[in-house]
Design a protein around this nucleic acid. Structure first.
Lengths: 144, 144
DNA sequence: TTGCGTGCAAAGGTTTTGCATGGCA
DNA sequence: TGCCATGCAAAACCTTTGCACGCAA
C-alpha cells in the first residue's frame, strides 16, 4: 500500500529522513541538498525537486513561499499528528528565521477565526520585525 | 516634504498611477509593465523593480508572495489611513486586503516582545489566510 | 529485463547588477 | 551643471526539462 511511492533508493530515503527530522520547521531544496552533502549523501538538485513534487502530490509535505525569501519552503506533514502550530518570526536586520512555538499564537488564530471570520494560514504567515540580538547590537553601535 | 522620493519622471508617475488605480488588488512587476505598455508608456523592467523597491522602503506599497505563482505581488497602501496601528489580513483566494483593528493582536505583539525579545514590524507583517466570504463560496461550490 | 530513478547540462522565468546615456532640478 | 533615473545587456537565482545512464524490482 505504498500508493505509487516508487522505488526505494538511498536518495529518496535521505530526503525523507531529512524532512522528518525537521518536521518542526521548513526547509528549502537548497538546504536539503546542503545538509545531505554534509551527511555524505550527495543528491542532485533535480532529484530533490522531483521527490518534493511527488511528496506534495501524496500530501506528505506542504509547500509555501515565505515573504522575504526567494526559494520555496517545504515542510513535512505528519498526517497522524495534528499539525503543529508554530509561527515564523523573520528578522529584518539579520534575516534570521525564528520558529516560534507558542500557545498564545494558537489562541489568536482561534480568535481571528471566531470573531473576524478569517481562517489563518499560520504556516505561511510570517511576522516581520527585529530580533533581540539585533536590537542589542543596534544599541551598541548607536552608542559607539 | 517628499522625503527622498526622487525626481518626478513620467515612468515613476505611470507606475504610481497604476498602483493607485489598483489599490484593491495586487499586481506584479510583469503586469505593471504590460499594462503600462498598453497605455503607451513603455517602462523598462529594471525601472519598475527599482521603483517598487523604493516604494517598499517608503512604506507606500506592500510586497507579497502568492502561492502557486512565481513572481512577487505588490499592492499600494495609503499612508493616510492609519496602517501602522493595525494589522493586515491577506486573503489567499480573492486577494482582498483586510485592515484589522484588534486589541488581541496587539496583546500578542506585546507578548512576543516581552517573552521572545522580538520587536514586531506592524506595517510589514501580513497575515495570510482565507476570508469569510471565500470560505462560504467554497462551501457552496462543494455542495454543487 | 523492464522501467523508474538519477543527475548533468541546459533551458525558462524572475529579479538584480553594471554601465553608458538621458533627463529633472 | 550635477546627480539621479533609465534601460539594455548580462548576471544571478531558483526551478524545470531533456537525455543518457544506473539501478531497484
Amino acid at each position: 500500500m505504498n500508493q505509487g511511492a516508487g522505488y526505494k533508493t538511498k536518495q529518496r530515503q535521505a530526503i525523507l529522513d531529512y524532512l522528518m527530522e525537521n518536521k518542526e520547521k521548513h526547509v528549502t531544496a537548497a538546504s536539503i541538498s546542503e545538509h545531505l552533502a554534509l551527511d555524505g549523501t550527495r543528491v542532485g538538485t533535480t532529484t530533490i525537486y522531483r521527490h518534493l513534487d511527488k511528496l506534495l502530490e501524496q500530501g506528505l509535505v506542504r509547500k509555501y513561499t515565505v515573504d522575504g525569501t526567494t526559494s520555496a519552503c517545504f515542510q513535512f506533514t505528519d498526517k497522524d499528528e495534528q499539525c503543529r502550530e508554530h509561527f515564523h518570526l523573520k528578522c529584518e536586520k539579520c534575516g534570521k528565521l525564528i520558529h516560534l512555538n507558542c500557545s498564545r499564537v494558537k489562541a489568536l488564530c482561534d480568535h481571528i477565526f471566531d470573531e473576524h471570520g478569517f481562517e489563518m494560514d499560520f504556516f505561511r504567515t510570517v511576522f516581520y520585525g527585529v530580533c533581540g540580538d539585533c536590537r542589542n547590537h543596534q544599541t551598541e553601535e548607536t552608542e559607539g
